[in-house]
Design a protein around this nucleic acid. Sequence first.
DNA 1: TATAAACCCTGTAGCAACTATAGGGTCAAG
DNA 2: CTTGACCCTATAGTTGCTACAGGGTTTATA
Lengths: 140, 140
Amino acid sequence: MGNMTIGRLGRETSTKVETIRYYEKIGLLPEPRRTAANYRVYTDAHLNLLGFIRRARELGFSIDDIRDLLRLAAHGEAPCDDIDRIAAQHLETTEKKIALLMQLRRELRDTLESCKGGRVAECKVIVALSPEPRGGQTGA
Amino acid sequence: MGNMTIGRLGRETSTKVETIRYYEKIGLLPEPRRTAANYRVYTDAHLNLLGFIRRARELGFSIDDIRDLLRLAAHGEAPCDDIDRIAAQHLETTEKKIALLMQLRRELRDTLESCKGGRVAECKVIVALSPEPRGGQTGA
DNA sequence: TATAAACCCTGTAGCAACTATAGGGTCAAG
DNA sequence: CTTGACCCTATAGTTGCTACAGGGTTTATA
Ligand SMILES: [Zn+2]
Ligand SMILES: [Zn+2]
Ligand SMILES: [Zn+2]
Ligand SMILES: [Zn+2]
């Protein structure tokens, strides 16, 4: 049960075939050997590696992050500081995104709550988006 | 103080010049008139419109959403239901993004807390990303 | 055995929303 | 009259895929 086609590998890892070929093209997944008919033949090593990549992507790591993680993970005897640092930095990025989105959510909620329907001309959504009332004092 | 160059408009709205030209190209911002030397000349109407667009982008509305908002906002006498619906849907999208990111944050935090440093071979970050332990019982 | 479905291949273009560069022309100040 | 700041167009790059187009191969079945 070691060798498999690209379709099988995709099914096992919930990855589209095009995505697997894309990972190969950008050098994230190593090129497998080919059959006489030029079909890719993957091994369990590929399966494990792609599993790792997909899980990291699910957690939001960028492909560059994953490259770094894979490079570092190859040295089992080294200290794991660098790996933990990548994860910590990614956590920080994620926290910043959450904070920003929560602020947007608040603004959207406030706006929607304040608009009780009516004509477009008085719609609070439009008011909230319009530049004039914000940042400007009622001039002179 | 009505007419201005693209650079001035960019400064007033915290928008890069290239972005303004991009908005024009995709038909979001109407083409301004030109000087004899082919320079764009913007009016206060453009300033207001671009302000609206930028504020909507800050709140995470897509450009397609903004197109719809602008189209609807042009009919001041109509009811604002459609506008509010776009905003409500955008709020929902934002909430889903937050929920997803908060789940990722939890996984990243748990992982990082469990790794107290050591060798890469035992790093909990790597373990958390590896496919084997997850989703599979300890086979037979 | 024929043939059709299901799979595989390469290469290219598209998505969102910009950003950056190349290779020019124009305008105001000194 | 030259320097520097500004403007112009057109094109390519960014991120992480996804979707063709236009083929070849393998497998199942009638
Ligand atoms: Zn990251
Ligand atoms: Zn409203
Ligand atoms: Zn939206
Ligand atoms: Zn670690």
